[in-house]
């Protein structure tokens, strides 16, 4: 099994109001950065998972995003997947 690192970015959907983004944009404006627009604030998550193939890893990340990591009703997500080489077997020390 290969280990994969998934980096997931979650933001509100484009059509959804992002109150935090609006507030930050206003605050930036108040500091003089009045050429700034379209501030969107989201969250970043990363996790390691073990899967036989990239395809399987992808489908797992997809499923986790749909079921728990994001709220698909109002949020969009993107992710990157990279194979990771591990020196030691993580999670298998049997604690």
């Amino acid at each position: 099994m290969t280990a994969w690192k998934a980096e997931i970015q979650v933001t509100y959907k484009k059509s959804v109001l992002d109150p935090q983004g609006v507030a930050v944009e206003k605050a930036l404006g108040a500091l003089g950065y009045d050429h700034v627009e379209k501030v969107r604030i989201g969250k970043y998550m990363e996790l390691l998972l073990h899967a036989e193939s990239e395809e399987k890893a992808r489908s797992q990340v997809e499923e986790m995003c749909q079921r728990l990591l994001t709220n698909p009703v109002i949020e969009d997500y993107e992710y990157r997947l990279q194979p990771v080489s591990l020196e030691r077997g993580t999670g298998q020390t049997g604690s």
């Binding site: 509100y12 959804v16 698909p72 109002i74």
Partner: peptide
Amino acid sequence: QRPAVQVGD
């Protein structure tokens, strides 16, 4: 029918 949901502030 997701766009029907609004976010409040």
